[in-house]
Amino acid sequence: MDDDEVLDAVGSRLRGFRQALGLNLAELANRSGISISTISRLERGLVRPGLEQLLPLARVYGLPLDELVAAPRVGDPRVHLKAVRKHGLTFIPLGVRAGGLQAFKVIYKPISKSRPPHYNTHPGREWLYVLDGSVNLVLADQRTLLKTGEAAEFDTMTPHWIANARDDQPAEIIAIYGHQGERIHLTDL
């Protein structure tokens, strides 16, 4: 698809996103700061959008610009995973998006049962899914054993600690951190 074809298809994409959110033209105009008539002309393909229209629409729709206009993908889409090790854990980023939610595969080495909990607190929420093995999730004084295929979500202002539940095999989880959680967990890796 060449640039003209991409630009010609933008209007119908914009209409589709608006309709998918259940917004009428007036509601979208109110949220985006773009006039109703301009939005209508954009959606009908009578004018080609510029950044001054696309940026506010992307914010309202919660989409990156390239997805909003169906820009052709360029370059290698693979994420080049680079493991980082800290405190006996291995963090592997599963995406390259800066800011917002970040997903990581986290590997917990087998540990001694006598290791005392090291509690963390920070603003935000954390979500985790156990890929393999089992982990102990301790929230304040409540201990939960999570096994392969189980997930948990919690407010990270609650004192929390996660550790491998076994001393004979590693445990692997997928963890999703918000911006605050990423800072707490990974700044000095």
Score class of each variant (00 low, 15 high):
3 D>W: 09
4 D>I: 11
4 D>T: 11
7 L>R: 11
8 D>Q: 12
11 G>C: 03
12 S>H: 07
14 L>Y: 09
14 L>E: 07
20 A>Y: 01
21 L>Q: 15
21 L>Y: 09
23 L>V: 06
25 L>N: 05
26 A>G: 05
27 E>Q: 15
32 S>E: 12
33 G>K: 09
34 I>E: 09
37 S>A: 14
39 I>Y: 02
41 R>Y: 05
43 E>F: 04
45 G>W: 06
45 G>Q: 08
47 V>Q: 01
50 G>M: 01
52 E>C: 00
58 A>Y: 04
60 V>R: 02
61 Y>V: 01
67 E>D: 12
72 P>Y: 02
74 V>Q: 15
74 V>A: 15
75 G>F: 09
76 D>Q: 12
80 H>S: 11
81 L>S: 06
88 G>D: 08
88 G>T: 09
89 L>H: 14
90 T>M: 06
92 I>P: 04
93 P>A: 11
95 G>S: 13
96 V>H: 10
96 V>I: 10
100 G>N: 03
102 Q>K: 11
105 K>S: 14
105 K>C: 05
109 K>P: 09
112 S>A: 14
115 R>A: 15
115 R>K: 13
115 R>G: 01
116 P>S: 11
116 P>K: 12
116 P>V: 10
119 Y>K: 08
123 P>R: 12
123 P>D: 14
125 R>F: 13
128 L>C: 09
131 L>C: 07
131 L>D: 10
133 G>D: 06
134 S>H: 04
136 N>R: 11
139 L>A: 07
140 A>S: 15
140 A>Q: 13
142 Q>T: 15
144 T>D: 13
148 T>V: 02
149 G>F: 05
152 A>M: 07
155 D>F: 05
159 P>M: 07
164 N>H: 01
166 R>W: 01
171 A>D: 02
171 A>H: 00
178 G>F: 04
182 E>Y: 14
184 I>V: 10
187 T>E: 13
189 L>Q: 09
